[in-house]
Design a protein around this nucleic acid. Structure first.
Lengths: 359, 359
DNA sequence: TTGTACGCGTTATCAT
DNA sequence: ATGATAACGCGTACAA
């Protein structure tokens, strides 16, 4: 193929150089090349044409052809400026290294794409200053709407944010009565309690998550309420708040296992926290599932793969994200919206399969 | 507080309504309110003022005051259109539910903020069509540069992408000789091999990751090369490709444990894959660390918390992301850039602590 | 120091 | 069906 240059190459030397190495191709570029006017080109490329007459079909094809040749890429920013809408959704998450939040975000991203939106996600670390900075950035990029996955129960931030007039919904954590999509956390906590109570456990501990996160709060509420209703209220010091990750779970487990009497079962409001609990049990020479029952929450993929498979309450994470976007779209259309809770499901595994011997 | 309206409320009825509920405040809004001109306001708000004279200082403060009152939020999109630079970095990751990739992204996000950039990340699922769509989107939003964390070794996509003239670097997975920041994967694989060989293992298996991912390839290379150099080459069927998650690890483990002779040690190029291996071992009644040694890669936080703590090769994930941005910034400045590899570290834990009894 | 004028790329409106 | 024109919000030469 080396020396096989065809003769025509010489005659048409000055071609429009397809990928436009230096400056980008714009509508004007195409307009100049076709001899048509910018507005016409714009209409064709956007499909903003009323009837499909014969004359139009030809030029339309020619425009599209040239656009392809010069490697035209529409400038969404400019379009957004003119159209006063960015087709951009801002998403706030505490941190994406939390697999639960990453899963919810996957659901968000997919649903958003389906609705013709792009998403921009930020790690806020549950830190007000960081959150503020990222929100300012997104506002500055003129997001059409926001999805908060990192709401705090007090809801003061959201109250302030509402003043911007940018529509938003919550996922993962509810707050006040802002529209939100969450797992039915209270019910999830109840399922865990029902299971452990049925196994004969009467002295139980809870790794309750961060004190300002509604998901942890609700799961804990559902759990403790069940035991209270059975005449076995869970004492305050049997509920320990900590981060949702393994480190937090380990910290909380240390506290719980020092109690006297020692809980025979521990409910962690997140699987990774539960893994931290399992780690501490091992260090103390206790066997999860035999000496101490453990139930987690979310049912992340590895829960079933652990050396001692972890019982967990399944949280439809992808669906939470996807439904969040659906809800947001309805909100933006001015339709009435509500709080939505999705049904959890208990998955019993080895970490809590044995009945309590003392029962 | 109900009926406590002060008399002044009546006299100054038509105030500029701070958060501007309907339309947003623009530079023009502020210009009108101060009686100054838009360009002046722009300069002050951007700090584009040469000397700090007395006269300016007063008006500057007044402008900033009004800007605050009307809740002015600059329009980055419009600014970008004018300035021909979006201050936006596009980031492509296979999927953020992979904690390793989420960690790298955290590093990217932080470093980007430090450099005054915003980031937009996408899950590409290692799928060409999805990747293509997201890249088109980012190009359309006029990203200043790109970071690919999902490169395939063949590098055909990147070769095409280079034609757009948008600078980019790779993180996590190298490809061809594009600038990249990765863990020294070959060395990491070698460390794992050295350790297992020293423990007396001679028949070993490798869970090698996805066949098109350079990180898995290099880790495998470093590992197998070591054994080959010791006169114990790892047979082809002892190297199984699979996804980096627990499911992939489980699948690969099934294959490896069916081999005859059965490997006495398994090296998984990712911790989550290693967890999948641990799960299969349990199902088969084998004990990790005693019957079969297991070493993972990345040293994610839960590795040390597992019921059988997992040996792993530490990968400085945050740093990979952060250095990736640094490299990109240098590239954008036209400085010469290179491939960068960061030193891995072996962490021996219970899953591979015992010497091989058959040795 | 401050004002004037223009253009970034696109879309919407009005006229032809 | 197509052309002309204005405007979105901002930054920057240039003039005053």
């Amino acid at each position: 193929m080396q020396g096989a240059k065809s003769a025509t190459d010489v005659t048409r030397a000055a071609d429009p150089a397809p990928p436009a190495p230096g400056g980008r191709a714009t509508l004007k570029t195409i307009a100049d090349l076709t001899g048509l006017h910018v507005s016409t080109v714009s209409r064709v490329l956007n499909g903003t044409t009323t009837g499909a007459r014969a004359a139009s079909a030809a030029t339309a094809e020619r425009i599209r052809q040239v656009a392809r040749e010069v490697g035209y890429v529409p400038d969404i920013q400019a379009a957004g400026l003119r159209r006063q809408s960015s087709r951009l959704l801002g998403v706030m998450m505490a941190r994406l290294t939390d697999q639960v939040l990453a899963s919810i975000y996957e659901g968000v991203e997919r649903a958003a794409t389906r609705h013709g939106f792009h998403t921009m996600v930020s790690n806020t670390w549950d830190d007000p200053a960081t959150r503020q900075a990222h929100v300012a950035m997104l506002l500055s990029r003129r997001v059409d709407a926001m999805i908060f996955g990192d709401a705090h129960v007090d809801g003061t931030f959201l109250a302030e944010f509402a003043a911007h007039g940018v529509p938003f919904v919550l996922v993962n954590r509810r707050a006040a009565d802002h529209p939100s999509v969450t797992c039915d956390d209270v019910e999830g906590g109840r399922l865990a309690a029902e299971h452990l109570y049925a196994q004969g456990h009467r002295v139980v501990g809870v790794v309750a998550g961060l004190p300002y996160a509604a998901n942890g709060i609700d799961r804990t509420t559902g759990f403790t309420r069940y035991f209270a209703e059975r005449g076995r209220p869970v004492p305050g010091d049997h509920v320990v708040h900590a981060s949702f990750d393994a480190a937090g779970g380990a910290l909380a487990a240390e506290r719980l296992l020092d109690l006297d009497p020692r809980p025979s079962a521990i409910f962690a409001v997140s699987d990774f926290a539960a893994i931290g609990v399992l780690g501490v049990l091992r260090e103390r020479g206790l066997r999860a599932g035999r000496d101490v029952a453990v139930v987690g929450f979310n049912d992340v993929p590895i829960a079933a793969q652990l050396t001692i498979p972890l019982s967990s309450v399944r949280n439809p994470m992808h669906e939470v994200g996807a439904r969040g976007v659906d809800l947001l779209v309805r909100l933006m259309r001015g339709e009435p919206v509500d709080r939505i809770t999705l049904a959890p499901e208990l998955r019993v595994r080895e970490s809590s399969a044995l009945p309590y011997p003392g029962a």
